[in-house]
Design a protein around this nucleic acid. Sequence first.
DNA 1: GTGAAAGCGCTAACAA
DNA 2: TTGTTAGCGCTTTCAC
Lengths: 374, 374
Amino acid sequence: MKKRFPITLGDIASRLHVSPVTVSKALRDQPDISKETTIRIKILALEMGYIPDYTARNLASNNTHTIGVVIPKIAHSFFSSVIEAIYDAAHEQGYEIILAVSQEDASRELQHLHTLISMRVEGIIITVSQQTKDYTFFHRVKEFDIPLTFMDRAVDVEGFSKVLADDRGGAYAATEQAVNAGYSRIAHFSGYPHTSIGREQLLGFESAMKDNNIEVNPEWVIQTGFSEQDGYDGFLRLYRSGNMPECIFTVSFPVALGIYRAVRELKLTIPDDIDLISFGNCTLDNVLAPSLTYIDQSTGELGRAALNLTIKNIQEKDKFVPQTITLPTRLVLRGTCLPSIRRNIPSSPVSIDKSGVILGYIPTAGSRGKTRKN
Amino acid sequence: MKKRFPITLGDIASRLHVSPVTVSKALRDQPDISKETTIRIKILALEMGYIPDYTARNLASNNTHTIGVVIPKIAHSFFSSVIEAIYDAAHEQGYEIILAVSQEDASRELQHLHTLISMRVEGIIITVSQQTKDYTFFHRVKEFDIPLTFMDRAVDVEGFSKVLADDRGGAYAATEQAVNAGYSRIAHFSGYPHTSIGREQLLGFESAMKDNNIEVNPEWVIQTGFSEQDGYDGFLRLYRSGNMPECIFTVSFPVALGIYRAVRELKLTIPDDIDLISFGNCTLDNVLAPSLTYIDQSTGELGRAALNLTIKNIQEKDKFVPQTITLPTRLVLRGTCLPSIRRNIPSSPVSIDKSGVILGYIPTAGSRGKTRKN
DNA sequence: GTGAAAGCGCTAACAA
DNA sequence: TTGTTAGCGCTTTCAC
């Protein structure tokens, strides 16, 4: 016997001598079908291997329970963990995710936005590409009544929800940590100035310097990108210039990594020849030597907050108010950028809040809470 | 004036006094509509901001141009680069990707498979979770006439396409490299034995050992998982046992990372106290000291091959023949697991094929092709 | 508690 | 070259 797939509601209905409507309702647990028939229907549906057709369901019911996510990159630890959080949260809430990758390309991003609308997603979360200059299409999305949330990278448009990291505050904290460590010759490897992240961090850096009465040396504000290569190249240039700072605050973790690499090749040492502190999640705790002190921006929080806000905006579409959530950062002390007294205990990481209060020792994964002394 | 969105084919049609069918055809460049009307229609569609409704199109045309991908994890450099490749390749071929994440959970995986069928994806690519024991549902997928391709992790079922890394061959090459480096006391941190990857690599390890007349010491075949923590814990246990090998071949890159961490904490050195070679992509070339010699399994190739094979199976559904593609691995020499004569030139990476022939120097990103001497 | 009628927006097949 | 008819599989509405 050859089953004919896919089974439809009608197939089930005719076998049970009821109407397709009854089957449809029963399978969706509508209360107006009797307990009995509902069960009979469900059992038969299971037996027959019925799997609903969402293309039809979506068309008829005019909703898809689907959220579109547009990001610039996947193979990048920051984005991949943000996405993982989004997927997780969506799963909990019963939404499907359609993920689109722009590869930092504005036209591809635009194309994806079209596709997502065509797919009739109910909401969109987007981290704009670095190229994106034209914001008109975001308003088009709005005309389609699709809530759109900007994530991580801010964009200069009103009327949308945003979920951002506190770049300015984090940069301030990082700079202050460098100052507390006893440095005044501090450089900043900042991101591209046309990105909100680059601009915000620079502002945080400058304001912390100013508050500590330290002049910013323009030669030491090095505008690079966010990649490892940028860090590597930037450091080599800086080194060759002959005018070296004592400490560098980098805009992203990969940039810091690039500096590690350059430092190693130049046979210098961290933190003695050059000290380092970085914004952005260090994915290599305890592998780098010395381990890097950094500003943590919970990627999980970012994804979850963006998803939940978007769903809220979907469900309360009528009373929509644009909302900006700024997620706090956290200073995580490791083996770099420490006051010299502390230099000897680099492997016991410590967390400090923005005001400088030590929150407690965070056991490193694997340290099992033991206190190591060295 | 308040535009009523979304615009439909009918809206365009009535404005132009043609039928919706004509519009539909024109927008899809069907040759049976005159050039002239096609252009008129396209212009108006653009003006009116028409965006097609795929939920309707998919239902009517009975295809979705969509491929489902199920993977165990995203925030993991291996999977995130595989996925990136899949997205890229799909974009080129005009397919959309629906990504689902099982989080290594079999029931979640099953649920996702249901959803993908409901969404009427035309094909599915899956890397099964480590838990997955029950393969019956894969046959159900087949009944729905949806080609399914297993990727990376093999599964003991017939009748499906598979795209796998050459785990056995790669493990053989790694082991042989350890032997060539002069070691005979070689350990293998292998994966879980219930995974195909773990089993295959162990077979490769054993057969290389046998071919070189070296006895495998069962104490040195350490079955752990694939994570950094597994490597860390395993190494500590091994170290405490007092019976140390000279060299360890690890099943995955994270496991090797864990060993770096443990080694550092124990104040040992690589490669003098313990040498290391790893299967799986090293994401940190030039950051680790010494840099790690490893078996590269092009993640890009894996994703692209899986996608292309799946599309082929979709397009030639009638003449489907299950096919297994095994992708070759590549030994990438860095600073570990080298014959002692070579120890001094660790930073000039070299590629060697399986027979041991040097293929040439690969310039490291950032080295700019310069030959460094140290 | 159940079902008949209508239609979601689009496309396939066929007619004109 | 264009349009008519029919229907994809489902849900919504409303009558019974």
